[in-house]
Amino acid sequence: MRSFDYAAPVSLAEALALLAAHPTARVLAGGTDLLVQLKSGRRETPLVVDLKKIPELKAITFDAAEGLTIGATVPCCQLTAHADLRRVYPSLAEVAGLIGGTAVQGRASLGGNLCNAAPSADSVPLMIALSAQARVAGPQGLRTVAVEDFCVAPGKSILGPGEFLVSIFFPLPAPGFHAHYLRFIPRNEMDIAVVGVGVSTTVQDGKIAAARIALASVAPTPLFVKAAGDSLVGQAPTSEAIAGAATLAQAAAKPISDMRAPADYRRHLCDVLTRRALTATLGAQ
């Protein structure tokens, strides 16, 4: 790796001051993306700012009245082990256990997965399905951005100069709420999603009251397909309703052909995985 300086601020204010003084600095959470990029020469920086010492970025806070806040640098291994998280957001604990292997989960964070802004990020479609909100600190103060609006291009997010992700907030699930992430990979574990689908549904009095569907690896960014989820609202959880939503999700996908799969196959997978994920959440009632 090329030489760089290292700083480990212990407060949001200290981190903001460092980033204001060094516009080309890169922030570091678990390092499972950044260090690989620095080693390969894909990125260079004069200063690495390690955010793992800042209290707001390393805490998991569950409030039974409000919801769950996950600091941007909390490693996946803490999510899979967290009792409240496993109980209230089981799909999130499950997806944290899907990213990389054991040693990678010891470092990699959901915050890093989001900020790396890969179209294939496993956790992002599920976070969108969970209506997650990204909390961002910057020179103008704090702002909140819906996770579906966070990524703007491969490797690019809405984060402006001097800004960094503080935490991700997950609202409390309503009664009858279930969420699920499904991906297709050619191997059993530890692979990049050919297609990933995150869904959530809320069923009340036998009718679908709310639904959200998001896709990975079929567009330049993780893709929120609002129309597909909305098509389910007011309907009974039937296989016809599910098939209709899956068709809309498939129609929204804009996949490319690459070494992992041809575009047609990815479109096919959007339909199949959306149906299966919705069948899982609606069957769970």
Partner: peptide
């Protein structure tokens, strides 16, 4: 050297990590 093979695995505060991806 990029976190795939695990041959550099060590424990950091008791947690398994690949030491090639830790400064």
């Amino acid at each position: 050297g990029d976190g795939n093979c695990g041959s550099c695995s060590v424990l950091l505060d008791g947690q398994l990590v690949t030491s090639c991806l830790v400064l």
